[in-house]
Amino acid sequence: MTCEEAEVLLHALIDGELDAGHAREVEAHIEGCPHCAALMKEYQEIRQAMAETDLRYKAPLELRRRIEKALPQPQPQAVVPSRRSVLRGFAMGSAVSAIAATGLFAIVLRNDDEQRIEAEIVSAHLRSLQAGHLTDVISTDQHTVKPWFNGKLDVSPPVIDLTAQGFTLVGGRLDYVNTREIGAVVYKRRQHVINLFVAQTANTERRPATMTTLQGFNIRRWSDHGLNYWAVSDIGADELTEFGDKFEAAMQANKEG
């Protein structure tokens, strides 16, 4: 191999783009050629120096806003959502988590969708606490509560008895969130009510639980097997986490069982 050839090919060697045969040839040339060996070393040093330097630019916030504004909004506010677009609205939660690392964009979406839905979830929880509004079907028996939902929603919320784990099933209710009907399974911990809201999502990926606090209520939110869950209560975050963990464990046991 000539130096001329090696001077081009050594770059592909540095970049790991050479096949094994050519790589060996270039390496053999460099071993016997001080000129090419020195060049190779310099290129690697420059490359190392560049890797240690931040050479990227960050898009200005203003540019991000301009692009956001110029693109059609994911959910136009003026249009009354159809049932399908509502489901997409819930699916948005998983989309947000997928791009959570991208900063502002995720925050903007959270404001638009996640936070709005969470605020509605809390409102629904508050409504449920008013006299006579907590349950449509009163039963501590999961085999009564679960069939009750059938035909009332396009998704059947899982109803799991957690009495043995310290969370008493008290019934189920149809509620109204994001302009649509949504299933709520009601539990009690001592005198505290836990509403577990369940909605369908297009995304079947599992999304680990997050805990937020809104208006003094804790919300534990997670997704699994195409369902979004929001557990809302005034019990402490630790107890609500325990509730969520027990619920998910029981779901898992049901599937395996």
Partner: peptide
């Protein structure tokens, strides 16, 4: 189309800094 817009944002906006660079 809201769904298209959502998918596009999700797919393309994470590369905004790369594109700007």
């Amino acid at each position: 189309d809201p769904e298209k817009a959502r998918r596009f944002r999700e797919a393309a906006l994470p590369y905004l800094d790369d594109a700007y660079t």
